[in-house]
Write a protein that binds this DNA or RNA. Structure first.
Length: 943
DNA sequence: TACCAGTCAATAGT
DNA sequence: ACTATTGACTGGTA
């Protein structure tokens, strides 16, 4: 079994490159500036240790308006402030500043190279490569990067390619790398000039500097593993020693364990893919994991960006004198899609073009003969990219912040025959290894884990184990890493009162974390997500393990996310690589013999921790706890700044009233893709912000789509061009109707007359008025919320089969109104009159094995999103009649001014939105299986 | 700029 | 103490 999995493929790591010289003018920089920069670099050092991993990040953030919540206690602040001060240099022209930075950087790099050369690093004992540049240098580099980013977000600086505002500084990094490589690499071939995929991103720089070297340095297999995470650990949030004790840390131990072979329960995983993907995956894994110190660095190539990318040589042009651009593009798209490589990364790294250009190129490749010499370049580069087997790996590596070197080191394994465990490798004996590929995977994970588990204080995993009832412990993989734990720690506690959603740090971490998992996700052809989640659920249930702990320890996700994942797993092919990760982790977890034990242990640990805390007294333990307090602290804290406190306080979620929801649903039915005016209208009408409305629509579309897989509901929020533009009047009418309905239902069901049917009366009244065109909507009474009186909170009935959300859809498509009507009525009929049926009670959706079979439905068969079956005609008619009365503001935009009464909406041409294919390429997302469509037709609604 | 995917995290419900 | 729901975000694409 294992053998199958094992990979024999070896990925050859050498990339060639020309050691281009990136020489930059020694330029004389402005001393003042230089000083400032360097000194800042020093300051960057955090008191506690290495620079925050998120340093650069926060930095970038600083440029954005977000720094509202100055957390008094976050150490970040200080640095941030410092940075801000930096702007003192504003008086200097940006270009100049940029140039200075670059020059300084170049100088440093050059020096570095020279040093290296001088010292010579024949590859003696220590890996010569990657010598960590002195801290100073590293910091200086960081500072440069940072500053450059600030200065030229737009990339107006001549020599530099556009720097994405964020963390990428490919060019600089490339430079940096180049310098090093130059020194180190002896082998280079001048060919591959073009692609330089290795450019790491900002963070990588750090990693390269430290991580890698660290790793290499220690390098004995074990060490490697232990520190393996190094790369990752660096990135990891630093925990204060004290904090660790908090239960969470426990997770780390979970990480390492190796299991017996057998990777997957599903054939897919192993067998089917045996040939390519898996093998490749394994090889990648191998390369990722094992690598001891060899510097195998790929060639020095390194050109980084556009400006830096070396022009294509005549030879190359000659070589490719007639490329099939279409084909190239197709293949490139496949590759990008399969590995989830962003266009931006690809463009900047490989083509030297911006994301937009890449998009354009990939979407509409011109035929070769139509291209100019210059226009052909990108295609040549793409061609070369395609021909370079390592290119993808490098890109992936950089994408996930894996030091490219790691990916590159492959040769080693090549020879290893499959079955026989590559044990010979420098594998870490640490654990009993199973065998080859599998083990490799596990190792990787361990690596990650360990790394993650900062210090693995909890190192020792837990022994005993009960195999979860439902499944056999076969599969040999290791527990998926759980670095997130750390994250959690970080995030929950008090640290950063960053008002934002997620502390940037976390996000970054995420990214750095699981290369192998990503690889697997990218290379795995198919995985039965449903089966996996089912097993997981069984296991958790049987062992009384909560989603929260599982999510944090195993998946690195929050409880809510886990809940969604488990209850509504999307089919594999619908998932992007990122979205697949959790499933891979689950799969790995399932194959971990000690999975449950570990969690159980963790659980106990946490329990005790909290107990301890509690008993220890409210005194100061404070924060550590997973929740609460932040808020309370706030209130109590005498923090003077009223503003300070408020913003940071837990943000309160907007809660829609039943009426508002109903209104939104209705609006959605009328038009799932409302335009701005409509959104604004709704916002005003419902007393919500536009942003909120937008979010709701988006969430609703996505969520509807999610349930689609089960065969019934959800219609694809396909954009229907023919649909009538959103008509406020109609909306109001329908809404009133709907609310009335609800009212009745409620009363009927409950048998409890509402004491005051406020909106009822009010609205119906309104409706009547509006209907008659007596009152311009604007004049209508608006409650505080600003629009229809929807404020009255209705309690929703707990009725069993209630139909929630999506029920409202129906067709209001104007043009086809007639047809629709006929269609709709015959509910079950073949017509896809988009009605959503009441959602089945709560059929465990995750159990629908059918998804895989679903077929994309013909795009043309768009379901019209109408509002129920209501004789739309009648209403429409009414609406039409009243159109003239339309509220001017909204109406103007929404309806063709000239043709008020014309029902069939002369439809404002709506931007056709081509269903775009989700990352995982093969799956067009807006597609819905036919059967589902039909199913939907029926519904109990009647308007 | 508008939209999609994935998530988080506050809430609601058991 | 959990799980489910859901408004809001971040990052990526066309």
């Amino acid at each position: 079994y294992v053998c199958n999995v094992v990979v024999v493929l070896s990925i050859v790591g050498t990339k060639d490159g020309t050691g281009a010289v990136f020489g930059r003018p020694e330029g004389e920089g402005d001393d003042r500036l230089t000083h400032a920069i360097l000194s800042e670099a020093h300051m960057m050092k955090t008191p506690t240790g290495p620079p925050h991993n998120d340093d650069s990040r926060s930095n970038e953030d600083s440029s954005s308006p977000r720094t509202q919540c100055p957390s008094p206690f976050s150490n970040k602040d200080s640095s941030q402030n410092r940075r801000l001060k930096k702007y003192e240099n504003d008086d200097i022209p940006q270009e100049k500043v940029a140039r200075i930075y670059q020059e300084e950087l170049a100088k440093i790099m050059t020096r570095r190279v020279e040093d290296i050369r001088r010292e010579g690093f024949p590859g003696g004992g220590m890996p010569p490569h990657m010598e960590r540049p002195p801290e100073d240098i590293r910091m200086a580099l960081e500072a440069y990067h940072r500053e450059l980013a600030k200065i030229q977000p737009g990339g107006n600086i001549p020599n530099l390619h556009n720097l994405p505002a964020m963390p990428h500084f490919p060019n600089l990094l490339a430079l940096q790398q180049q310098a090093m490589q130059q020194a180190q690499n002896q082998q280079m071939n001048g060919s591959g000039a073009v692609q330089d995929l290795s450019l790491p991103k900002d963070k990588n720089a750090k990693m390269n500097g430290m991580t890698d070297s660290d790793k290499d340095r220690s390098m004995d297999a074990e060490e490697a593993i232990r520190h393996a995470g190094s790369a990752f650990s660096l990135v990891r949030p630093k925990l204060e020693p004290g904090q660790q004790s908090t239960g969470s840390s426990a997770s780390s131990p979970l990480g390492n364990a190796i299991l017996p072979p057998a990777i997957t329960p599903n054939e897919d995983f192993s067998s089917s893919a045996a040939a390519s993907p898996l093998q490749r995956m394994a090889s990648i894994t191998n390369s990722l994991i094992s690598q001891p110190s060899n510097p195998p660095h790929h060639p020095p190539v390194q050109r980084s960006m556009k400006a830096v990318l070396p022009p294509i040589t005549q030879q190359q042009f000659d070589l490719f004198n007639n490329l099939n651009t279409e084909d190239i593009v197709r293949r490139v798209k496949e590759a990008l899609s399969q590995y989830s490589i962003s266009q931006r990364l690809f463009g900047e790294s490989v083509l030297g073009l911006s994301q937009g250009s890449v998009s354009d190129l990939l979407a509409r490749p011109k035929p070769w003969h139509m291209l100019t010499q210059k226009g052909r370049e990108p295609f040549i580069r793409m061609k070369m990219f395609l021909e370079d087997d390592n290119a993808v790996h490098k890109l992936v590596a950089s994408q996930y912040k894996i030091a490219p070197e790691k990916l590159m080191r492959t040769g080693n394994y090549s020879g290893a025959p499959a079955c026989p465990p590559n044990m010979n490798k420098p594998m870490p004996p640490t654990q009993k290894m199973i065998s080859d590929a599998t083990s490799l995977l596990s190792k990787m994970q361990q690596e990650q884990l360990l790394g993650a588990g900062h210090l693995g204080h909890l190192g020792q995993p837990t022994p005993l184990l009960l195999t979860p009832p439902g499944f056999p412990p076969h599969h040999a993989v290791t527990l998926p890493p759980q670095h997130h734990d750390n994250n959690n720690k970080e995030r929950k506690p008090p640290p950063p009162p960053q008002p934002h959603h997620q502390p940037p740090v976390m996000r970054n971490l995420h990214q750095h974390i699981s290369p192998s998992v990503y690889e697997m996700a990218a290379l795995t052809q198919d995985l039965d997500t449903q089966t996996i989640t089912t097993k997981i659920k069984e296991a958790l249930l049987a062992n009384n393990i909560g989603q929260k702990i599982f999510g944090e320890a195993v998946l690195g996700l929050s409880q809510g996310s886990v809940s969604e994942l488990l209850s509504k797993p999307k089919p594999w092919h619908m998932l992007s690589i990122k979205g697949r990760e959790p499933f891979i982790r689950m799969q790995l977890w399932l194959s971990d013999a000690h999975n449950i034990d570990r969690l159980q242990a963790l659980k106990n640990e946490r329990r005790e921790a909290s107990k301890r805390r509690r008993s220890s007294g409210p005194g100061q333990d404070n924060s550590s706890d997973t929740s609460s307090n932040d808020t309370s602290e706030f209130y109590h804290s005498s923090s003077p700044g009223p503003n300070t406190g408020a913003p940071c306080a837990k943000k309160q979620r907007v809660l829609f009233s039943e009426e508002q929801k109903e209104a939104l649903r209705l609006a959605f039915a009328l038009d799932p893709y409302p335009n701005m005016p409509t959104i604004e209208f709704l916002a005003a009408e419902l007393g919500l912000s536009s942003r909120t409305i937008t979010n709701w629509f988006h969430n609703h579309r996505m969520r509807l789509k999610q349930q689609a897989p089960h065969g019934l509901p959800a219609e694809p929020p396909a954009r229907d061009q023919s649909a009538a533009p959103f008509d406020p009047v109609q909306f109001r009418l329908l809404l009133n109707q709907r609310l009335l309905e609800l009212q009745k239902e409620r009363m009927g069901l409950a048998g409890v007359p509402l004491p005051y049917p406020p909106y009822f009366a009010a609205n119906s009244n309104l409706a009547a008025l509006i209907g008659r065109g007596l009152i311009p909507p604007e004049d209508q009474v608006k409650d505080q919320s600003g629009g229809l009186d929807l404020s009255m909170p209705l309690k929703r009935e707990p009725d069993g089969d209630d139909f929630e959300d999506d029920d409202v859809e129906s067709n209001l498509g104007s043009e086809d109104s007639l047809d629709e009507e006929s269609k709709t009525e015959p509910k079950a009929a073949s017509t896809p009159a988009g009605r959503s049926s009441r959602r089945k009670p709560a059929a465990p959706q995750w159990v629908n094995p059918d998804w895989q079979d679903e077929k994309p439905r013909n795009p043309d068969e768009v379901i019209i999103n109408g509002v129920c079956v209501m004789r739309s005609d009648d209403f429409r008619r009414e609406a039409e009649e009243t159109v003239r009365v339309e509220p001017s503001p909204v109406a103007r935009e929404t309806s063709p001014a000239g043709t008020p009464g014309v029902s069939p909406a002369p439809a404002t041409p709506r931007t056709p939105r081509t269903p775009h294919t989700p990352r995982p390429s093969h799956t067009p997302d807006d597609v819905i299986p036919e059967d589902k469509i039909k199913a939907e037709t029926d519904d109990g609604w009647e308007y």
